[in-house]
Design a protein around this nucleic acid. Sequence first.
DNA 1: GTGATATGAGAAT
DNA 2: TTCTCCTATCACT
Length: 280
Amino acid sequence: MVGNRPYHLGTMPEGHTIHHLAGRYRQAFGGGVVRAESPQGRFAAGARQIDGRVLQETDAHGKHLLLGFDDDRWLHVHLGIYGKCAFGPAPAPAPTGAVRLRLSNAEEYADLRGPNTCELLDPAEKKALHARLGPDPLRADADPELAWRRIGRSRTSIGVLLMDQSVVAGVGNIYRAEALFREGVDPARPGRDLTRGQWTAIWADLVALMADGVRVGRIDTVRPEHTPEAMGRPPRVDDHGGEVYVYRRAGMPCFLCGGEVRTGVLAGRNLFWCPGCQTA
DNA sequence: GTGATATGAGAAT
DNA sequence: TTCTCCTATCACT
């Protein structure tokens, strides 16, 4: 949004949120001098380093946000589960809560709260970060073949592989669950048992779904025939964003087969899937 | 006021 | 596999 009201991004920080934020920071601060401060104090030294510099470019790879300043240093932010960014019009009000970093100029301000990572990188460190991340469905330079080389020979389940940021970057718990549902793939299937065609379809789906997420600012994964309007069902009411097939729908009927959506813990993360539909 | 909870990820065991 | 860190929110006492 480009508005006059503060707004929050990152209720679901998967890759789409980060790419959206990169664009938002560029729109607000790109090409100009930025004021930086750390009201909370935990990034005071870093903020001093940024303060008064020009934001030259922004970048995003998976869930990592990178803001490039005119001293050749990059602010590296990872939101983790809790991190959030809030933008608003100048003048910035007194900060509320734990604001790790506030950037501002004459028009806007942006508050960063609760990031997992907030640090400055030199170009070599930024390069190393890219090197340890897999292809990102939202990046033009992404090569899904690199991911397939890992997946196609792995005994690890595709449900776990999709969450491994060194295999595919930017996919989180929601896109993982939804892409596998949409392609009818059992999350427990070992990567090497997938066909290349299945991987191609999953990748294409991630590219489309996540690009949509960047545009809309939330995760909607249901096809037109499964929207609340099309099915005459009530819309999703919780605060987890858009319309989805299985994510956090445990015990509820599958929109396709009517069976119960299941949940379980896989590699320490909640997994949601429909046993009736995900058999491939 | 307290506790549970969440989308992540790295380190420790 | 379990711990630990980051923070806000909401349902409970």
